[in-house]
Design a protein around this nucleic acid. Sequence first.
DNA 1: CTAGGGTGTTACCGGTCTGTAACTTCTAGA
DNA 2: TCTAGAAGTTACAGACCGGTAACACCCTAG
Lengths: 193, 193
Amino acid sequence: MEDGAAERIRPRDRILETARDMFHKHGIKGVGVDAITEAAGTNKMTLYRHFESKDDLVIECLRATACSANAMWQKFEAEHPGDKLAQLHAWVRMAADCLLMDGRGCDMANAAIELSETDHPARRVIKELKQAQRDRLVGLCRDAGIGQAELLADTLSLLLEGARVSLQSVGAEGPSAQFVRMAEGLITSFRAR
Amino acid sequence: MEDGAAERIRPRDRILETARDMFHKHGIKGVGVDAITEAAGTNKMTLYRHFESKDDLVIECLRATACSANAMWQKFEAEHPGDKLAQLHAWVRMAADCLLMDGRGCDMANAAIELSETDHPARRVIKELKQAQRDRLVGLCRDAGIGQAELLADTLSLLLEGARVSLQSVGAEGPSAQFVRMAEGLITSFRAR
DNA sequence: CTAGGGTGTTACCGGTCTGTAACTTCTAGA
DNA sequence: TCTAGAAGTTACAGACCGGTAACACCCTAG
């Protein structure tokens, strides 16, 4: 029975989860594969049996992150079925909570900054995943009945992205502390148009 | 006469300028001191005669960047003497131009993301320089007669920071393309309050 | 002309990194 | 119980990193 051994997670998944956590905390170039495998309670050979390279592992981590984000959006829909405006407010609240709890920014944005080589294989993935997130936010704004949905969604995107990076450079008392106020103000303002 | 040899820039300054450029393009961890000195037409020993360590060099680069930003602000004042609102619009225009021309984000923000160690010596410097930039923007907004000067300044800060990082992850056709429209709209909106 | 400081050159240290090879051990399924 | 494949272990290759030592050079101020 494979469920009986389900508590013992497969090495591949342990590596993936550990790598996500460590990449998030210390950056991609800030952590080596040895450190990841050790923290995951396994070894380097096992890593390279499941992933072609470190870059491949990075990409899989980003996909996993996007997957987690998907789950968030499904939660919004589940908690406020049909009420797109409430879902938009839930998005703002979630974003603010992440800001407060986390401290380190968006994995994809951080990776994009760290992996400055324009032809890095992860860049394609980052772009396409970020694009998907953008499209979804635009869709939510539009379905919430906002006229200039794209402009609002893009503004909210930039605000959140900016808050995440500002949190790391200026700190928690910096501009990012006002994120919710800005976002809610913007939504109100766009609804009135 | 030392001015006669001024065309031949001092190795220290060549290293500093080259390092700024390379750190900006490839990130701090993405470029080694050997590559910097070679590109600067000198060698590693000379670098370490002028800078205590690579971290020290990084910090000096960030200070130099802040210095360049200072020059920008003086240009605003020189071009629109006394007219703070015009200076604010000039700031927006400058920011947008940087976005279009550059592609890579703010050196300080990028450094903050890359140097994830919370006790890294550069972090203090980044925080204090970013704080100074924020204070100056707040002052400009206030002097321009805007009521909620802090909120506007912080919103503009986050928008710009977000646009810079979005440019690297989603690309030029992403949300950052609307930066000017957002910023100008915000200024108008805040002036009307 | 000369002395001395700034600079260039070469070699090296110890460490870390990604990635691989060869071999042993474990474990699940027939 | 036996076997095949997954996982662990050890060692290593080759490259790059930050930083230092020793020494030769050049150029300018006196």
